[in-house]
Design a binder for these strands. Structure first.
Lengths: 119, 119
DNA sequence: CTAAACCTTGACGTTGATGTCAGAGTCAAG
DNA sequence: CTTGACTCTGACATCAACGTCAAGGTTTAG
């Protein structure tokens, strides 16, 4: 599919989709004309990106945490690092992101509890 | 106390403190000279602001939230249930992101294990 | 009284994730 | 072949939450 359809199906602007590509989050193929061609798997991929962005992660963190978005069938994309070492590092970065988010969620929980007592 | 001391005691820059005032989060008194004069209660107030910011709330949301949070001498406003709702939604979004990241980490773990077995 | 330290209000700079617009090429239908 | 929808690459605009001066007034220690 082309960018317009992906945009409609995900609710994400074309501008944003091009921006994600610019930062390595999406790698659509190109027609000779230059038109981007996306696969079905890019629809859930965009959804994952939005979830992480909504949670407060930056594009850079998402790039670092998900250098290889896993497909529905569980296969790695061709761009993935081969060394176990690299994979371990990536997993650890994801762990850091998780820790950050859990701390944030902890803060929110405390606030919510306090407000319930006060309100 | 004046702005420098509040800045030192909270670890928040003077610029940020002035910015918070600009947006209605702090209301220090003024000397005839124009110097801001803060009360002791402003120290914990600034801490609360930082916690909310760290939890991912915007200044505008905090402005709405502060009246609900005062333990000192403030009033409670009826916008509280709405606020708690928003906070809960925000927390749930973060939970979603954590789930995504944990799934990704699980995939990476499986790949790492497979690579190790395969040599 | 004076110098150092502190404070004031602008006002422009920064970063991240887009919005928006211009000028131009591409594609599908009639 | 032409029209209209779609897409491309810049490039400037925006918004939040500050950082960073600049130019000048205030306070306090000695």
């Amino acid at each position: 599919m082309r960018i317009g359809e992906l945009s409609r199906r995900t609710g994400v602007s074309e501008r944003a989709l091009r921006y994600y590509e610019e930062h390595g989050l999406l790698r659509p193929e190109r027609r000779p004309s230059g038109y981007r061609v996306y696969r079905e798997a890019d629809v859930p991929a965009v959804r994952r990106i939005r979830v992480l962005l909504a949670a407060g992660l930056s594009i850079a963190q998402i790039v670092a945490a998900l250098p290889c978005m896993v497909d529905d069938d569980g296969l790695l994309l061709p761009s993935c690092p081969e060394l176990v070492d690299e994979l371990v590092k990536h997993r650890d970065r994801i762990g850091e992101a998780i820790d950050e988010l859990e701390a944030t969620r902890g803060n929110l929980d405390a606030i919510i509890a306090a407000e319930r007592r006060a309100g």
